[in-house]
Design a protein around this nucleic acid. Structure first.
Lengths: 148, 148
DNA sequence: AACTGATTGTCAAGTAGTTAACATTAGTTT
DNA sequence: AAACTAATGTTAACTACTTGACAATCAGTT
């Protein structure tokens, strides 16, 4: 089997998935998919710092730093110093940010549930597991390369 | 099942896949994954124009236009006018570009074959089919929305 | 032949990411 | 305590994309 085919299929699927999410979020909550990810990631973290958030989002610390003011200016985010620590910043969603994150996540979840209902022939649980396994193999391969 | 989980897994897998490809291509052919896609897409097209290429790559015409000189300057690409047509440009890989595209594609194919051998428990053929089907459902959903 | 409408390629301006360098702070070692 | 070492957050410069506007060209209709 041509391995290029599956990598292309995966890229195409992810493109369609993210475009769909972006369109739904813009239309209903006036935020982009990438802004949604920012908010939802903050929501799911215990004591998020910019550096921690960067790692979760898979982007650089600089990228997070540049985006902080956007969320602060719109009163979605409260940035403060961790008490007894002058190095790390503490990021906390405001009530407004929390509501936006929760509602948009619930909305998107429901929309995708409806769409995926049309894919009843697929065992999503199992598919997720398979994809995770492939990911693990790739990461493992990378690490063994680095070690060598 | 939480549909967010599978979309995250897909995004993560694609990120790892593309990073792996990018690393391999940079190390062995001194090109990025995105440059590789540009070349390989040209290779597989009959009579590619910038506009056609943009559609294949899933980017804007402007994006392709801005990248053309990079490939031309390195003698990977010959840009000319279609005879009897003053509107469309004709893009043709040079011999050098063709060799680079072919060799890097073969190389990447083989590398991934080796990696995927460790995933023998997965029927890649079937997985590809499943993913394609899900993609179709998403696109179909989008089209029915647009029609409404 | 002239008009209309669509398509093409390019430019300008804006966005979101990158890496590299930096000052600052925290933690560890001596 | 002082001195390295490592981590954090910010900035500057760069890259690769976007959209919107534009002139040029092509194709179809009258």
């Amino acid at each position: 089997m041509n391995s290029r085919r599956i990598t292309f299929t995966l890229n195409e699927l992810v493109y369609v998935l993210n475009s769909t999410a972006d369109r739904l979020l813009r239309a209903n909550f006036d935020i982009t998919y990438s802004q949604f990810l920012f908010l939802v990631t903050l929501l799911s973290q215990k004591n998020p710092t910019p550096s921690h958030l960067a790692e979760c989002l898979g982007v650089s610390r600089a990228a997070v730093s540049q985006r902080l003011s956007w969320f602060q200016d719109r009163n979605f985010l409260k940035i403060s110093k961790v008490s007894g620590n002058d190095k790390n910043l503490s990021l906390k969603l405001t009530r407004k940010g929390e509501i936006l994150a929760t509602q948009s996540a619930d909305f998107l979840e429901e929309e995708f549930r409806i769409i995926f209902d049309h894919a009843a022939f697929v065992d999503l649980e199992k598919l997720d597991k398979t994809l995770s396994q492939i990911k693990s193999i790739l990461i493992q391969n990378q690490e063994s390369r680095n070690a060598a």
